[in-house]
Nucleic acid binder design. Structure first.
Lengths: 184, 184
DNA sequence: TCGATCCTCCTATAGTGATTAGGTTTTGTC
DNA sequence: GACAAAACCTAATCACTATAGGAGGATCGA
């Protein structure tokens, strides 16, 4: 008689991602998510282990998607070309999926998991184009991640109060990184 | 008879800051804060307007402290010297007050308030030493803030899985910024 | 010193969200 | 069709935010 929603973990996480991107990560409560899915809150426990687990899955999903986007952007390019493409893809993803990106932030060690490592690998691959290996590559990767992450965060959170094109600021930041990596 | 805690808004916010720095921002609940202060949760409403207000005050307090620290670091220095000093002070503050720094992040528009503007001003002052004014200074300030913010965030949140000195990575990041700003 | 008043803190209470326990019905398989 | 697994539900608990309204200590003028 009852239609049954026919959920599984992926569907739950996907809906949560939509909710997060549309209304912010804080809007993702089990109660609201359940309502969205036409189900009672306790039913969600059949698919996720609880709110922390849901958030972790959201982050893992986002890291995987982001890594994919970066990989695609880097494909077939090198050096500054690759760096600009990867940077653009990074920002594009974060702006298109603000809630998911937010979830990515709050993932403490989980970022250090599978998908997180994939993210680092893409950056390292780009740096190899600059001739950077070993220690130097790692320092470079940290710098690149920090810069992109920080910029996107400031943009999405605080919004850069001043009326000056954000695109241009980003382009210049990436140019600075390019110059710095070339010199290193 | 009753000893009375003798609280005021500053004391409440200060204790909240201690709690946040010691156990993370999420540990700062009115219930726990009240327990910490030897008081019942409703009593806190005499000093702060609620949890959002408390968080906002935490952020404002942090922004003011951070701006002070940066101003001190910049005093009497110029260019790369000033940049390195400010960057070091920035990271030092964030590491010493992780919970407060976390609160700073979550403050949406409040960062754009008094204390937030002071923060930007310090960076702009440093950039003036590089001969940057107007648009170029703003782009530069965004780059610097993004890089420092992003680095500190990655360090405190995810911890840079790899076993390679974080200090050295930071130093190199700042060096990249220095080079980039000099060229701009 | 006496008292009016303010302010701090309290109890009581409501409401929301996460989570667990334990049962019931649908779905898939033989 | 019957059995087993799994999806969902109701009921209940607990932690936390928040409001309402009251009691008592502190302060200041007389």
């Amino acid at each position: 008689m009852t239609p049954r929603a026919g959920l599984d973990t992926d569907a739950v996480v996907a809906t949560a991602a939509g909710l997060a991107d549309a209304h912010g990560l804080d809007a993702v409560s089990l109660t609201r998510l359940a309502r969205e899915l036409g189900v009672r809150p306790p039913s969600l426990y059949a698919h996720v282990a609880g709110l922390p687990d849901l958030r972790a899955r959201l982050a893992a999903r986002g890291a995987a998607e982001l890594a994919d986007a970066l990989r695609s952007a880097a494909a077939g390019r090198a050096r500054g070309d690759a760096l600009h493409a990867v940077a653009a893809a990074y920002r594009r993803y974060a702006l298109a999926h603000p809630g998911t990106y937010q979830a990515l932030q709050r993932a403490p060690d989980l970022e250090g998991g599978q998908a997180g490592a994939a993210l680092v690998d893409v950056v390292l691959a780009v740096l190899r184009g600059y001739g950077l290996r070993g220690h130097r590559a790692i320092h470079g990767a940290r710098a690149v991640r920090a810069a992109l992450h920080g910029f996107v965060l400031l943009e999405t959170r605080e919004g850069f109060g001043l009326p000056l094109t954000v695109e241009e600021s980003y382009r210049r930041l990436v140019a600075i990184l390019d110059r710095g990596l070339s010199a290193a």
